[in-house]
């Protein structure tokens, strides 16, 4: 569950204030946020993830208002309850796939059985690569790893920033299918922010910025 109210943000006093529509997602509800480049999509995502402090308004995840928590508690809380898929595929470069998942769980202090991590890698077709370092992966494998990293700790909210914009149609569909599948399995809200209109049909809730 995630709600936003009257969210606004300003990068610096000289710049225009960005205002965002309210979002209110119940359990298992998904949302697509569409908008052109530069309109503040990533900003909205970072506000929802607690990475940015809003100028006004509030973000409530699982009934907890993020800005009411101390920095440390907020990091821990969002680490545990939010999973993020970044615009660029990213993981810790010095670690292998399995270690990346372990590090993810270690930092968010979530305990998950070993088989679950292995299952997840299998579902994403990464079992053969699990001892490979990140730089040995192909683009597509890396993309799937980021999805694994966003869901391995069983978050309540999955935030995806342009997960499909650099993919061809086949991979676009694959990635979206995986994201929706994982969100459904974890009973989490999936919020995708993109300018990629190809995935529009997959969502009932759509907001255009």
């Amino acid at each position: 569950m995630i709600q936003t109210q009257n969210l606004s943000f300003q990068y610096s006093p000289t710049l225009e204030t960005l205002r965002f529509p309210d979002i209110n997602l119940g359990r298992k509800e998904n949302l697509l946020v569409l908008g052109k480049s530069g309109i503040g999509k990533t900003t909205l995502l970072h506000l929802m993830a607690g990475l940015l402090k809003p100028k006004s308004g509030a973000v409530t995840v699982e009934g907890i208002e993020l800005q009411e928590l101390s920095v440390r508690k907020r990091d821990r809380f969002t680490g545990q309850h939010i999973g993020m898929v970044f615009q660029k595929n990213y993981a810790i470069r010095s670690l292998n796939l399995l270690e990346n998942l372990e590090a993810r769980l270690y930092f968010s202090e979530v305990k998950v059985k070993k088989e679950q991590s292995h299952n997840l890698l299998e579902q994403l077709g990464l079992t053969a690569q699990k001892f490979k370092k990140v730089n040995q992966l192909s683009e597509g494998q890396l993309q799937r790893l980021t999805i694994a990293l966003a869901v391995v700790h069983q978050p309540k909210v999955i935030l995806a920033d342009e997960p499909t914009s650099s993919l061809d149609d086949v991979n676009c569909e694959l990635v979206m299918r995986l994201l929706l599948e994982q969100a459904a399995q974890q009973k989490a809200n999936l919020i995708v922010i993109t300018h990629d209109t190809r995935i529009k049909p997959l969502f009932q809730n759509i907001i255009t910025l």
Partner: peptide
């Protein structure tokens, strides 16, 4: 070079101290 790695760990819930 690892700024992104470190930022990533923060989103995982890592503290500055870690």
């Amino acid at each position: 070079e690892r700024a992104f790695d470190l930022a990533l760990m923060r989103t995982y819930g890592a503290s500055n101290f870690q």
